[in-house]
Simulated scan of single mutants.
Amino acid sequence: MGISTHILDTTLGRPATGVPITLARLTDGKWSPLNEATTDADGRCKHLLPTTETLQPGIYRVHFETIAYYRQHKLNGLYPYVEIVFTVTEGEQHYHIPLLLTANGYTTYRGS
């Protein structure tokens, strides 16, 4: 299944659309880019891991280019980007990494 994400703007109470996202994996101490995507009308990227890749154990990073979203909505955001680094363990088939966003803060958790 892979890796997916969802961004909700908790200030406006709606999905954060049009946010550029990149996915990378740590390999031999360096980040290797895997994919680029943009959140859809529901604030989602359902297939962040490319279909040509299998989910491997290791350390991954999702980079959210939040400044693009802030500019789109004429907001002054504190964080120009958010990076979430997480560990994929053996035997797992899917990771959902949501981002709850405001102009001055954010939070994340492992979703389902």
Rank of each mutant, 00 (worst) to 15 (best):
Met1Ala: 15
Met1Ser: 15
Ile3Gln: 04
Ile3Asn: 07
Thr5Lys: 06
His6Gln: 11
Ile7Arg: 07
Asp9Trp: 12
Thr10Lys: 14
Thr10Leu: 14
Thr11Arg: 15
Thr11Cys: 11
Thr11Gln: 13
Gly13Thr: 10
Arg14Pro: 01
Arg14Asn: 11
Pro15Gly: 02
Ala16Arg: 11
Thr17His: 04
Pro20Val: 01
Pro20Met: 02
Pro20Gln: 01
Ile21Lys: 03
Ile21Gln: 00
Ile21Leu: 06
Ile21Gly: 08
Ile21Ala: 08
Leu23Asn: 01
Leu23Lys: 06
Arg25Phe: 05
Arg25Asn: 03
Leu26Thr: 00
Leu26Cys: 02
Leu26Ser: 01
Thr27Ile: 09
Thr27Met: 05
Gly29Pro: 03
Lys30Trp: 00
Ser32Asn: 03
Leu34Thr: 03
Leu34Cys: 07
Leu34Gly: 04
Leu34Arg: 03
Glu36His: 11
Ala37Ile: 07
Ala37Gln: 07
Ala37Trp: 08
Thr38Trp: 09
Asp40Lys: 05
Asp42Tyr: 12
Asp42Thr: 11
Gly43Ala: 08
Gly43Tyr: 14
Gly43Gln: 08
Arg44Ser: 14
Arg44Gly: 06
Cys45Leu: 09
Cys45Ser: 10
His47Asp: 15
His47Glu: 15
Leu48Ser: 09
Leu49Asp: 09
Pro50Cys: 13
Glu53His: 13
Glu53Pro: 02
Glu53Phe: 12
Thr54Glu: 14
Thr54Asp: 13
Leu55Asn: 05
Leu55His: 07
Leu55Gly: 01
Leu55Trp: 11
Pro57Arg: 03
Pro57Cys: 03
Gly58Ala: 04
Ile59Trp: 02
Tyr60Cys: 09
Tyr60Phe: 11
Arg61His: 00
Phe64Cys: 08
Phe64Tyr: 15
Glu65Pro: 08
Thr66His: 08
Ile67Val: 15
Ile67Thr: 15
Ile67Arg: 14
Arg71Glu: 14
Gln72Met: 10
Gln72Trp: 07
Gln72Leu: 10
His73Met: 09
His73Trp: 14
Lys74Ser: 10
Lys74Glu: 12
Leu75Met: 14
Asn76Ser: 12
Asn76Gly: 09
Asn76Val: 12
Gly77His: 10
Leu78His: 11
Leu78Arg: 10
Tyr81Ser: 13
Val82Pro: 03
Glu83Leu: 04
Glu83Arg: 07
Ile84Asp: 12
Ile84Glu: 11
Phe86Val: 02
Phe86Cys: 10
Phe86Ala: 03
Thr87Cys: 05
Thr87Trp: 00
Thr87Ala: 11
Val88Ile: 08
Val88Asn: 05
Val88Arg: 02
Glu90Ser: 10
Glu90Pro: 01
Glu92Asn: 07
Gln93Met: 10
His94Lys: 15
His94Val: 13
Tyr95Pro: 04
Ile97Met: 06
Pro98Gly: 05
Leu99Asp: 03
Leu100Thr: 00
Leu101Cys: 09
Leu101Arg: 07
Thr102Trp: 06
Ala103Phe: 05
Asn104Asp: 11
Asn104Met: 12
Gly105Asp: 06
Gly105Pro: 01
Thr107Lys: 10
Thr107Tyr: 10
Thr107Trp: 02
Thr107Gln: 13
Thr108Ile: 04
Thr108Glu: 11
Thr108Ala: 10
Tyr109Gly: 12
Tyr109Ala: 13
Tyr109Leu: 15
Arg110Trp: 12
Gly111Thr: 02
Ser112Asn: 15
Ser112Pro: 15
